[in-house]
Nucleic acid binder design. Structure first.
Length: 878
DNA sequence: TGACGTCGTGTTTTT
DNA sequence: CACGACGTCA
């Protein structure tokens, strides 16, 4: 702990007696554990030896970690820098550090080593990597860089890059081998191509050679090299073992083999290893995470103390019940159940949308209600959160980034502030990568990928042919890329065939780089960046008056702002740090908890976050769970792990919600430009009906029903079943009996599209529901049955039964709503069509003396929001 | 060489 | 749809 400076003039107090010191420490220990439950306290005070903390979602594990560090420092007298905390994301590391600082103060807190595996390994390698031949100034190649490199190799090997020979696909196989710690240059893995087969080992060999020559490590190599270093250089390992005596690993269930071995090596000497994790939240299997690492912890460390944190402080019991109902279907998991002292909570609200735009609109309207926004139909407080929620308390989560687009568009139309986390990551934007590539070129002669990235950006007439000549010469003559450029300028090393025009261009480029290099270490980093952008002509290139150029320039200014963060370092160190950190930082870390905006985020990226209100969109078979997991399940023999991982992902998503959860799905969705019909996700079905408004399960039609359907997804008006989902995942549909219409039978949702269309046309849309009132209702109408009932209740409209009797029986058509004098013809949420303005949705509608005033938000953004009189505008229900 | 159009193709999640 | 590969023309 920091001590106040000693004033020599003052009389030093007598040193405290041993007894006094002991009492003070005990008091501190008391204070640290005061606000913890007994299990949390045990996790905090069990400081020595291996410790496994099984921490369920929302059980306060970050709290435990932070308090544990405080306890180590304050009570056990451990020096802050002897404590290592490894997290999975930079954001988690930052949060943890913040919490620690809050507990033990800035000066001690900042010395605690907290970071991701990748960042820590990079740091270790930067310092000691030379022992295994890793250059001190290595660069980290991200996915883009790797692909650029692999593309080169495929070109040289004359392999057509498509399908399984796409750079990404090949790199995926190489990465998988590395994650399993199999040497990719020696694997027996081939891709069949027309007229032969491609050996992955050969491409991997080339790839590793290139990385080596470029002085680069990819993400996987960062971990592998760090493990290799500890293995090959015991004295280096010993140094780190003695420095980091108290080890903590967060999200242990997500560690892969190299990470496991790295931490195991570090822990081998002092054995003070505390790992925190939850097998139910293991969602990175596709990246090599090995759930066995946590399941086998007790086998690895037989003397381990095991603490289970099962009290949840985040969510309502209802939300926990829903989450548990889903995840407990998994076979591979340790049995456990979270509980909470929080109240029961609101039902989960479900909405079946017509398509993704309708889904997005519905979410936007719900958010208006929740926040009391301008279009809100709620004037009364209907439950604990409605009308009182701030945008920052809301998150919309989805399975894949592509889903955010429709939601963004709706938010734009509704004027809802939002922030997107993830997606196109900032440091992956072209202009940002270009600028960073310039900076990397200033630091390295050999970074081919960066050289090739910028050598002709902005255009300086150095084309593909020239680049290939340079590359060829570098390979042939063993030159660095920079030396190859010099050789081309001088016309040596067989590079004397280039036209004088290109030689001039190269000369100019060489002068530019030299000039900029002379400024490194002289100019402060932000000014160096200015100089780079100016001298290279990059700024001029963007200043073409286009909107795009402006946007890109704005991004570069943002990058410039980042460079000012390293003001306290020397310009040279600042540059190196920038390059290091930008390679290892994802945009996930850009999540701003403070901005008053709705958060749009993938479930993966949302892990570790919590929100009072959560929407999960796109709960459809094929989207969530993904079609890949469904395909895997259908393989012979079936592979069940992908589906179990999807289920865990659903669990993670649900448990992000503190008070209110909304789940949505669409009955049709445009995917890669093509409309697809969708069936509700099995995860929706797995949530017990009584926890949801708008139950999916129809009574008496469960798995044991006569048709052996997992659930029924629709009935026609007569209450006749129109289809359902088979236990194996296939779908069943009932024929309409009409001539020409398909007959009863099974079909496969993801393959037999024609059959699905048949099912769709046969009776009713896929999402028809039995309403709470018992009548049949078509949910692609607009709001689902529960929603309609809810709205009816709020509107206090007599004679409006829930579920809107008289629902259509034929897809696409809709009975006209009768015009009743003195009664509103349009209701909030109605989809309408206007001859000139196209389709839209009614936002508000109110009766005037003699007419009805309808406000409609049209789908066409150029039309926007319009208020019109129902008697004049030829507005029709769509 | 570079600008521009057409065609084909693939799609999760991220350090 | 959105992006990259490839072909054509200036």
């Amino acid at each position: 702990m920091p001590l106040p400076p000693v004033d020599p003039a003052s009389v030093a107090p007598p040193p405290p007696s041993a007894a006094e010191r002991q009492a003070a420490t005990a008091a501190l220990a008391e204070r640290i554990t005061a606000n913890l439950n007994p299990e949390q306290a045990r996790a905090v005070t069990t400081t020595d030896g291996p410790l496994l903390i099984l921490a369920g979602a929302g059980s306060g594990k970050t709290r435990v970690l932070a308090h544990r560090v405080a306890y180590l420092v304050g009570v056990k007298g451990v020096r802050p820098w002897q404590i290592l905390a490894v997290t999975f994301t930079n954001r988690a590391a930052g949060e943890l550090r913040e919490r620690i600082v809050a507990l033990i103060g800035e000066s001690a807190g900042k010395d605690v080593q907290a970071g991701t595996f990748h960042a820590l390994c990079a740091r270790v390698l930067r310092r000691d990597g030379e022992a295994i031949g890793v250059r001190r100034n290595f660069v980290v190649y991200d996915t883009d860089d790797q692909q650029a490199l692999m593309k080169q190799i495929l070109g040289e090997e004359d392999i057509e890059a498509k399908g399984a020979t796409r750079p990404a696909a090949i790199l995926g196989r190489i990465s998988r081998a590395k994650n399993e710690m199999v040497d990719p240059t020696a694997i027996d893995d081939f891709i069949p191509v027309t007229g032969g087969r491609v050996a992955i080992a050969r491409l991997a060999t080339r790839y590793q050679e290139r990385l080596e020559r470029a002085g680069a490590l990819d993400f996987d190599d960062l971990l592998l090299a760090a493990v290799r270093l500890f293995d090959a250089a015991p004295e280096v390992l010993a140094r780190y073992q003695d420095r980091w005596r108290y080890l903590h690993v967060d999200e242990y269930q997500d560690t892969n083999r190299p990470q496991y071995l790295w931490i195991k090596a570090l822990a081998a000497k002092h054995r003070n290893l505390a790992v925190v994790g939850d097998d139910d939240q293991s969602i990175y299997g596709w990246r090599g995470a090995d759930i066995r690492n946590i399941l086998d912890f007790e086998r690895d460390y037989p003397d381990a103390t095991v603490v289970k944190l099962e009290q949840n402080y985040r969510s309502t019991q209802l939300i926990l019940d829903a989450a548990h109902a889903v995840v407990s279907r998994n076979k591979a998991r340790t049995d456990k159940k979270l509980w909470t002292a929080n109240d029961g909570g609101n039902s989960i609200r479900r909405y079946e949308a017509y398509d993704e735009d309708d889904e997005a609109e519905w979410i936007a309207r719900r958010i208006e209600d929740l926040t009391g926004g301008r279009g809100s139909i709620l004037t009364r407080k209907a439950d604990d959160v409605d009308g009182t929620v701030r945008p920052l308390e809301i998150a919309v989560m989805y399975r894949m980034n592509a889903q955010s687009r429709a939601i963004e568009e709706a938010f734009l139309r509704y004027g809802i502030r939002y922030q997107i986390v993830g997606g196109t990551r900032f440091y992956q934007r072209r202009e940002v990568k270009d600028a960073l590539a310039y900076l990397r070129v200033l630091r390295s002669d050999s970074d081919v990928v960066s050289f090739e990235r910028i050598i002709n950006v902005p255009a300086r007439s150095i084309g593909e042919k020239t680049i290939q000549a340079l590359r060829g010469a570098a390979g042939r003559e063993g030159l660095s890329t920079w030396d190859a450029v010099q050789a081309a300028i001088a016309g040596t090393h067989g590079l004397d065939v280039l036209a004088s025009r290109t030689r001039n261009a190269l000369t100019d480029f060489g002068i530019l780089v030299k000039r900029l290099r002379a400024r490194v270490g002289v100019l402060p980093l932000p000014e160096l960046l200015d100089e780079v952008l100016e001298a290279s002509g990059y700024r001029a290139m963007l200043a073409d008056g286009s909107e795009e150029g402006e946007e890109r320039w704005a991004n570069l200014l943002e990058l410039r702002a980042v460079t000012t963060r390293y003001d306290d370092l020397s310009p040279e160190d600042a540059l190196d740090r920038l390059l290091e950190e930008t390679a290892l930082v994802a945009d996930q870390d850009s999540y701003e908890g403070e901005a008053d905006a709705v958060t749009l985020i993938t479930i993966h990226a949302a892990k570790g976050l919590e929100f009072p209100v959560v929407f999960i969109a796109g709960l459809e078979e094929g989207v969530f769970p993904t079609s890949r997991s469904i395909d895997a399940e259908r393989e012979m023999p079936p592979r069940l792990e992908p589906m179990e991982e999807e289920r865990r992902l659903a669990y993670v998503g649900i448990t992000r919600a503190k008070r209110r959860l909304y789940v949505t799905h669409a009955s049709r969705r445009v995917f890669r430009g093509m409309g697809q019909l969708s069936v509700p996700s099995r995860f929706l079905v797995e949530i017990p009906a009584e926890l949801m408004e708008g139950p999916l399960l129809v009574e008496g039609e469960g798995a044991a029903g006569p048709l052996d359907l997992d659930f029924v997804f629709g009935r026609n008006r007569g209450g006749r079943l129109i289809g359902g989902v088979r236990p194996g995942g296939g779908a069943y549909r009932q024929g309409s009996g009409r001539p020409g219409a398909p007959a009863d039978g099974d079909f496969r949702p993801s393959r037999d599209l024609a059959a699905r269309r048949g099912a769709f046309a046969a009776g009713a849309p896929s999402g028809s529901l039995a309403s709470p009132g018992g009548g049949a209702v078509s949910a692609w109408d607009d709001d689902d049955a529960a929603d309609a009932a809810y709205a009816a209740h709020l509107d206090d409209e007599p004679g409006r039964a829930p579920g809107r009797p008289g629902a259509p029986t034929t897809a696409g058509s809709r009975p006209p709503r009768p015009i009743v004098p003195g009664e509103r013809r349009f209701r909030d949420g109605d989809r309408v069509r206007h001859p000139r303005f196209g389709g839209g949705i009614v936002v508000t509608s109110k009766l005037t003396r003699s007419d009805e005033e309808v406000t409609v938000v049209f789908t066409d953004p150029t039309v926007g929001r319009k208020t019109m009189l129902a008697s004049i505008a030829s507005l029709e229900l769509a």
